[in-house]
Nucleic acid binder design. Sequence first.
DNA 1: CTAATAATCCAACCATCGTTTGAATGTTAG
DNA 2: CTAACATTCAAACGATGGTTGGATTATTAG
Lengths: 222, 222
Amino acid sequence: MEKSGRQVKDVLYAQVARIGKAVCSPKRLELIELLCQGEKPVERLASEAGISLKLASAHLKELRLAHLVEARKEGKNVYYRLTGEAVADFWVAIRSLAEDRLLELRAAMAKLAEHVHELTPLSRKELLAQARRGEVMVLDVRPEAEFQAGHLPYARSMPLEELRKRLADLPHDKPVVAYCRGPFCLMAVEAVELLRKEGFSAIRLEDGVAEWRALGLPVESS
Amino acid sequence: MEKSGRQVKDVLYAQVARIGKAVCSPKRLELIELLCQGEKPVERLASEAGISLKLASAHLKELRLAHLVEARKEGKNVYYRLTGEAVADFWVAIRSLAEDRLLELRAAMAKLAEHVHELTPLSRKELLAQARRGEVMVLDVRPEAEFQAGHLPYARSMPLEELRKRLADLPHDKPVVAYCRGPFCLMAVEAVELLRKEGFSAIRLEDGVAEWRALGLPVESS
DNA sequence: CTAATAATCCAACCATCGTTTGAATGTTAG
DNA sequence: CTAACATTCAAACGATGGTTGGATTATTAG
């Protein structure tokens, strides 16, 4: 009984460790975060994560073996997606734990947004209410495909690359709130820096869609 | 900007991957689960996880480097404990994700409790209410030290080793609910098997204290 | 003081993993 | 059909990690 108990336990913990192995590589974590923004083909994942296509393929295979992602073939492309919202929730959970426990991480993040005071004075629900009443404008600065896969309520899609050309669409009489893929993403920071230079009242929302949803708040999709 | 952005990102994901590395080893996961039951000296951790003292020490060092556990020296012994409840929550989260995603894990768990129908017909809150009214008896079959570090409300400590001697203390006229360290722990399964052989009406609660607390339910300590 | 215990450090072995390279597969365009 | 493309597979390299055994540091008992 003792021996068989140990054998059974070894199997159980080994299975959980498969999830751990899947998330012990920085690149795989980055891929998971990218997939939190919606399904994408391998090539896009590779370029957005800054790695070669082959390496991305290898990492995605690992993630597939751990059943965290699955693939769909369409024509010449293979589109990857998370196997469920639970995976996005897990990404939020492990990132939160790291932020909580690792001072080095908090330091790096603080440096990231040195000049952007992102601390929203208003709570998330209050932001939602103000957006509904049109008192603030919420900007989604991610690529448009990601916006369409899912976005915050009342948000407008305005990818970072187009932002400079479309400044005329933005209001000067109320605050602009920009968000992107999440706390590790630089796009909203850049957007806020640009907008402030141009005289807008802009603040950054650290949340991405995954964080927003994990908190139980509503998410829309086109 | 592009290059520095990549460098910053690499640092951020690498930090999160430190948490991933900490939980990519089955033994380290088992140690974390044991520490969810309260602080313990290295030797006890080693024997309960079925590994050598040296190996346990090495794994604990890794966990300490990831700031998931911390150590306290008392006399000849070094007591380890989790750095916070967030770590226990994370253990519950990664185990839940694994149960959710890995069919192999679910199969192994089903085999574990083959003859023990553990599916509690009553919800956790209902169980709590019935325990308060004395309609069921809740047994904590873990070692007594773990009971004292934290246990379910209205639970009685009755370690598995002593159970056979103390059968006279148990009621025949109402159900007995046994729990232990969690879904991976065999003690409650064994307890239920024994109790049923002896004619008691016994069911297993899969939760351990960490699962119970992660759900926002109350936990008591002596 | 010495002996014994608890735990860690250090060095070494072997297995595994991340990464790159070159070849192979399957799909669409012409 | 062939050519071009997207992706995966297979092999190989160096790097990293789990595990063990021997020596080392604290602490207590006598």
